[in-house]
Computed example of a mutant assay.
Amino acid sequence: MATPARTPILLLKTRSSPHDGYDDFFTGNGYKPSFIPVLEHRFNNQSLAEVRELFASGAFNQNNGEAQATATATARSTQDNKEKKYGGMIFTSQRAVEGFANMIEEKGLPYASSIPLILYTVGPATARTLTTLRDKYLPLATIYGADAGNGENLAHMILQHYNSIYTVKKEKEEEEEEEAEEEEGHSKPALLFLVGDQRRDIIPKTLMGSSLASKERITVEEVVVYETGEMESFEGDFKDSVSDYTDMNGGEGEGEGETWVVVFSPSGCEGMLRVLKLGLFTPGDCDGEAGKKRKIFIATIGPTTRDHLRNKFGFEPDVCAEKPSPEGVAEGIRKFRESRSKA
């Protein structure tokens, strides 16, 4: 019996290293994944060296004999907490994790094996990459937030989780110490947020928001560890990949069935639509018979990219993943196929 053909799926992202969760998942579930990088990432080695120096200088309090507080541990004194500048790190992109990992691979990380860090992360893909790094270099670290889904959800999870760890005053002490706290700053260590040059500020704004009580605010210090720009070769690379599966002039390509394109960010959307002649670039009626006969379908990783396609290009993607994960994309495709078969 012939082996069923795998469905081509073009992932508009750089393949993550050392492994990619999307590649692993789709390869094992009847798809033929291909990666077409949209963005070019350049690591900021100077900033990464500064992060390394923070570990070497004791900013994460690795020389303190106490283990890091846990959610069930008793509160520390204000003075004990002031000895530690940072209580954890935030990662919301795999590029930030990769830059951090590259720095460790090349330069090492002082005292890494003895530092009980909290590592906050925004989604399962980044969490998997971070777990590989943790298991190899930071065995005492804990990872939290893998199911957050987006930065806003993660910020609220951090507020609850981190504040539950660093409860440094008993209720009866709060009134008499309130004035001192306002003058001296927060009594809990800050969080170090490794970011790219293009990022939303929802996490710092939420954690340091003026609407929060002073004792609930969490200081966030951002370090830009990579810069991002759209690759000049993307549109041509994407056109070549699409041509492998379908002839752009109406003939037959390698693939006989459907082909999926998964879009991970607003970057590259215009080039993608131009190549596929969709949205503003569609000659004729994209909602008529031509649309029904279309063999290339578009899925977005979440609502931000979907809304960008809608609002700027007048294009409605076929699928918007409910969760930003391989499983979320696959479930969206499954539902789309099911509804299409009933139409």
Rank of each mutant, 00 (worst) to 15 (best):
E106A: 15
D287V: 05
P37V: 03
E177S: 11
E53K: 15
T126C: 15
E53G: 11
D80F: 13
E327F: 07
L278A: 09
V224T: 15
S57I: 09
L207N: 10
Y137W: 13
G271E: 10
Y166M: 11
C269V: 12
G229S: 15
H41E: 13
M1R: 04
P8G: 02
L54N: 06
S113V: 09
A141D: 10
I90L: 06
V220E: 03
Y31F: 15
I9H: 01
G268H: 01
R76M: 13
P317N: 04
E227C: 14
I296D: 02
A71L: 13
A69P: 08
H186S: 14
G229Y: 00
R128L: 14
M272I: 03
G123N: 04
I9A: 01
R6T: 13
I203M: 06
L207D: 09
I90D: 04
L278V: 10
T126I: 10
K82L: 15
E98G: 01
F43Q: 07
E105V: 12
T126W: 02
P324Q: 04
S187E: 07
L12S: 00
K293I: 00
S16M: 06
G145E: 03
E174F: 02
L48I: 14
N163V: 13
A213Y: 05
S214M: 12
K32D: 14
E235L: 14
S113E: 13
G251L: 09
E105D: 12
V263M: 10
T246P: 00
L191F: 09
E227M: 14
G28H: 09
E105L: 11
L212W: 04
E181N: 07
R337M: 12
E230W: 00
Y245G: 02
Q160G: 12
F25K: 06
E327H: 03
K169Y: 13
G123C: 05
L159Q: 01
K13C: 00
G314N: 07
M157P: 00
H161L: 11
I298A: 00
N63C: 13
R274S: 08
H308T: 14
P266T: 01
M89L: 15
V51M: 10
S34I: 08
M89H: 05
P110S: 03
N29W: 03
A180R: 10
A112F: 03
V38T: 11
F60I: 14
T282C: 15
H161D: 15
Y120E: 09
K85G: 05
G58A: 10
G271N: 06
A56F: 09
W260K: 04
L278E: 09
P139I: 08
G99Y: 03
G253V: 05
S325Q: 06
G253C: 08
K32R: 11
